[in-house]
Simulated assay, not measured.
Amino acid sequence: MSSLDPLRRLAVEQSRDRLLTIGAAVSLAWLALVGLFAFFGPEGEGQGAAGWIVWLVGVLLPLALIWLAVWSARSLLSLRQEAEDLRAMLTRMQEHDPASQPEAVIEPRATPHPAAAAVPRSPLPPAPRPTADTRQATLELDSPPATELTATELFYALNFPDGPEDREAIRCLRLALADPGMARLIRAAQDVVTLLAGQGVYMDELAVPQTDPALWRRFAEGARGESVAALAVIRDETALASAGAMLRGDEVFRDVAHHFLRHFDRLLSRKAQDNGDPQLLAALAETRSGRAYVLLAQVTGMLGRADAQTDDGDETLR
């Protein structure tokens, strides 16, 4: 299953809850009408048992239809969400299958995951970057004047667009690239995600369980090591080993990773001061950029679990 957007999941749950509220409100309105009719309507003397049965059916049948409609609408929302997840999973399976790729995309080495190459940009000068997915080259990201991003826009920008049809994420990405500081972070994040994807480490496949937002607030304020070790939630040993090996043996990746970690650190610190909401910090860690940050922070020992130390050590990240 592809990376689940927490904001979209929240929207689906809110829609389901809203349907329950609507169903309850309509039911109460119907019962109020029935009560008014029974109070002010003609007396039912001499109706008999058959009359009462008809009256009860007339009262209960609309209620049953109301809740049948509510149940159907909630089920439809769930089915749509499952269909989107299945479609994303099938798309990713086809993209991993070399036989399903166009000949122009097939290369002797691993091709970066499409989600890792969503932002077309010029590579960094120290060394050539892995080839980006050519299907994303048509995204027009001419940046508008810089504006302050909302929490939702920041989330979408750091999560990268899923494709040319992901218009909302593309819009948020344009806004982020209009800010020089955010543009450096976005490009550094994509460099890291793309290089990791070249070694088979895909952010969509990293499980990042929910963590205590208060810990992210403490981390953003400068806490490091064992005091925030509960944030080291990645348990994918293959991903940890691959990232550690790249940090030790690939000088280019090490420089890019340190550059990315510094910029993401500054973002967390700034948002902790400006916004003050630890929920935002925890949500940013669930983006593709955030997952890359957690992976590297865990590997380098910033979270108290140094699975692989680099030659430069953690001091270069501060």
Rank of each mutant, 00 (worst) to 15 (best):
L4Y: 02
P6F: 07
P6K: 08
L7G: 02
L10P: 00
L20H: 11
L36E: 08
G41C: 09
G41P: 08
G44L: 14
G46M: 06
I53P: 01
V54Q: 15
V54P: 02
P62K: 05
L63T: 10
A83T: 12
R87Q: 14
A88L: 07
M89F: 14
L90R: 14
E95R: 13
Q101P: 05
P102H: 07
A104W: 10
I106E: 11
A110I: 15
H113N: 09
H113A: 12
H113T: 01
A116N: 05
A118L: 03
P126G: 05
T134I: 12
Q136N: 15
P144F: 00
E153T: 09
L154D: 08
Y156R: 15
N159M: 03
E168K: 14
L173E: 05
R174D: 05
A176W: 05
A178T: 10
G181D: 14
R184M: 11
R184W: 07
A188N: 13
Q190W: 02
T194E: 14
L195Q: 13
L195S: 12
A197K: 03
E205R: 13
V208R: 09
P209N: 06
A214G: 10
R217V: 02
R217Q: 14
A232Y: 01
A243R: 01
A245V: 02
M246R: 14
L247R: 04
L247Y: 06
R248Y: 00
R248P: 02
D250A: 05
H259N: 13
F264D: 08
F264S: 09
R270I: 01
R270E: 07
L281H: 04
A283P: 00
E286D: 04
R288C: 06
S289H: 00
R291L: 06
V294E: 03
V294D: 01
M302C: 04
D312I: 09
D314P: 07
D314H: 06
T316G: 15
